[in-house]
């Protein structure tokens, strides 16, 4: 009963191909004595080219695990993770990912310039000094190029980490609470800076945070996750025009959105 008639070409989806696509992703972590905990279940998430998506969720919902899977640091137990049409590990191996985690992981023995230039060394490419200088300027660290990380404040170290993440013009930028360890005032300032930097670079970005205001201020879409096992509970489109100024955080629309998302998170927290 072999079909000889040529089958029609598969219908093309209307949406442009996603830069980051998680489909039916689940992750279970093995604990001791054969017990396992399910961190994520059947999670679908698509991030378009040049889009900024923030993931918020109650603590322990596996949002960092999502980011680590996109970074190729964890493998999904079920489902697939595709970044720029390839596996995350392949993308990492071709030096196309940029990351900034809560721990800045700057090399203490290296200067700020050396740290920002590190991705060039790891990619085995000659250091583009002009690009390094440009990024040091972009994150506002000019004058501190030869300082060592421990001579700088926490905020300055995170700026250096962000400059390092951007220096190779990555296809995808992954941020895991990059300002999580900073005080509230510094954190707000860093978010304004990040919004400015991002509107200049427009890189596909996934940000993980537990701060709803931070997510709304920075992202095009905010994904609210459920508690463990994590799933997508709600996706909120953010329509504030760019470049965004601090003024939008005082608008009624902003407050309304904060209340909505905080409500969703609180419901998750008690569930």
């Amino acid at each position: 009963m072999a079909q000889t008639t040529p089958s029609p070409a598969p219908t093309l989806t209307v949406a442009p191909p996603a830069a980051v696509a998680l489909s039916g992703v689940g992750k279970t972590f093995e604990l001791s004595r054969g017990r396992a905990v399910s961190a994520l279940e059947d999670l679908d998430l698509h991030v378009a080219e040049g889009e900024f998506v923030a993931i918020v969720g109650p603590s322990g919902c596996g949002k960092s695990t999502v980011l680590r899977m996109v970074a190729g640091l964890e493998r999904p137990s079920t489902g697939t993770v595709v970044v720029e049409g390839r596996s995350p590990r392949e993308l990492a191996r071709s030096h196309r990912l940029g990351v900034a985690f809560q721990e800045h992981a700057l090399l203490p023995w290296s200067s700020i310039r050396g740290n920002v230039a590190l991705p060039f060394h790891l990619a085995g490419r000659p250091v583009d000094a002009a690009r390094v200088d440009e990024l040091v300027r972009l994150v506002g660290l000019e004058g501190f190029e030869s300082a060592r990380p421990r001579q700088l404040s926490g905020g300055m170290r995170q700026r250096a980490a962000i400059a390092r993440a951007l220096v190779l013009r990555p296809d995808v930028l992954l941020l895991d609470e990059p300002f999580g360890a900073l005080d509230a005032v510094t954190r707000r300032r860093m978010n304004r800076e990040l919004a400015r930097i991002w509107s200049e670079e427009r890189i596909t970005t996934v940000l993980v945070t537990h701060d709803v205001e931070e997510a709304l201020f920075l992202a095009d879409r905010v994904v609210v996750m459920t508690g463990r096992p994590g799933r997508v509970r709600h996706v909120h489109r953010v329509d504030f025009p760019r470049p965004r100024e601090a003024a939008i955080t005082r608008s009624p629309e902003f407050h309304e959105a904060v209340d909505l998302l905080t409500g969703l998170l609180d419901a998750e927290g008690t569930a």
Binding site: A92, S94, L97, F101, A105, L122
Partner: peptide
């Protein structure tokens, strides 16, 4: 530190570069 190893992994550093740098 694990943070450093993660960073080098995401930046696509091989074993030798991770060792040396």
């Amino acid at each position: 530190p694990a943070a450093g190893r993660d960073l080098f992994g995401v930046l696509g550093a091989g074993r030798l570069r991770t060792l040396v740098r």
